[in-house]
Design a protein around this nucleic acid. Structure first.
Lengths: 244, 244
DNA sequence: GTCTATAACCGGATAGAC
DNA sequence: GTCTATCCGGTTATAGAC
């Protein structure tokens, strides 16, 4: 019953054609970067990678799935840049600004690719959309990082707000990225202005959340968010909510 | 020098092939509604409309442009439903809810088509994206309606906020529509919940905007919005801004 | 110069053999 | 897992008709 003779040790390290997959992805990203997404055909990718079209489709369901794979990679890059940059920074506003700035800096080489990714955000059926089940791991990673930003700060966050804040700030992050995609100013100056100011504003808002005048609204808003999430049974688990 | 003999009166009414264009659009919308966007081919549209493919492309640059044309039409429907429904309603929150509810009700038959439209919102290059120059007239119409909602209410809005509020609330409207697109609950119950509660919350926020604690933030936020718009020279004139 | 039609193109995606 | 051959549908080139 010895099903797998296993030729030698240390062969588990590269599960067969995993190399091929990584190679195709790397080739695709390079070509996207050089020529742009639209101008790069699947035929060109396959040829450059030294495989056939059919083989490329064996590893990636579609051209857009190549972009999704790239998305996972940029998050890794973001993590590497963001976490060290956060060291020693305590105010919430400043930490938020660090997260967002490192985000747009690490993603800069793929500015136009990000637009492709975001294009699918509105399509409920696409597996690439950030609210879909398929994107859950990436979304979780992103909110996890946001949680680190909050908890590492010296801001006092009320308990009820604390549990939702990472999700709410992730939505804010998505908004900033959407703005960035449309931003063609030199050095993305407009996005940087937006980040600097809105981060401070949001931090101030959080610090004000316990004051009597604002507290009622905070409670109402959080209750709404909870109810909306509760209503999402069959739909995607991660629930988008509106800005307040 | 009589350049145009003008055969008879009332011939200016139908400028030639305008009928054909309208007919193609109507046919396309019907087919989209019956079979869905993806499942409806340009060949099928042309055939059903009794024209050739080439002719269809003479009137509409692309399949997506058919969707843009539909968008203009839904706004007309929205207007017809919204304006009468606003009569007699004075509180800002209620008026906002009326605008949003009539919006999703009139657009309901084209729920999945709206997703197609929104898909392009992230693509800076697409003429269909709501922030683009090509979409300016439609966006203006929408903010104009929002202005009517605000000015017809009994809410007291500070002057500096008043000039920006229509634009800000238009962004809010876009967010609600994005939520609606992803909402597959029965009767769009979750979107209706979102509309009812968030409209009230926003109205409350506006009424609080003059209180000392909040006033500073209001000023800062409005200044940021103005600066962002000022920085948008070469880009689209209508500038998206972040939620606060 | 505005409208209409036919035939091809092009590129993403699939079928099925090896 | 890898390939070749093919499909399919949006789009374009181009020529003729009003």
């Amino acid at each position: 019953m010895a099903r797998k003779p296993k030729p030698a040790a240390a062969e588990v390290a590269r599960p067969k054609g995993e190399r091929t997959k990584a190679h195709i992805l790397a080739t695709a990203l390079a070509l996207f970067r050089e020529r742009g997404y639209e101008a790069t055909g699947m035929r060109a990718i396959a040829e450059q990678a030294g495989v056939s079209i059919g083989n490329a489709y064996h590893y990636f369901e579609s051209k857009e799935h190549l972009v999704q794979a790239f998305y996972a990679e940029t998050h890794r890059l973001h993590l590497e840049a963001c976490v060290p940059a956060l060291a020693g920074v305590k105010p919430l506003g400043a930490r938020l600004a660090v997260l967002l700035t490192t985000k747009i800096d690490t993603a800069e080489p793929y500015h136009h690719l990000s637009a492709i990714l975001f294009r699918t955000a509105a399509d409920p059926k696409s597996p690439l959309n950030p609210f879909s089940a398929a994107s859950t791991p990436v979304r979780e990673d992103a909110t996890q990082l946001m949680k680190l930003v909050i908890e590492g700060s010296d801001a006092r966050v009320p308990a009820d707000l604390a549990s939702e804040l990472p999700n709410l700030l992730w939505l804010f992050e998505m908004s900033v990225i959407l703005f960035w995609i449309h931003d063609d100013s030199a050095g993305r100056a407009r996005t940087r202005l937006l980040i600097a100011r809105s981060s401070e504003l949001l931090a101030k808002l959080v610090s004000l959340a316990s004051f009597p005048l604002v507290k009622g609204m905070r409670t109402e808003m959080l209750e709404l968010v909870r109810e909306l999430r509760a209503g999402a049974e069959s739909s995607a688990p991660g629930t988008p909510s509106a800005p307040s």
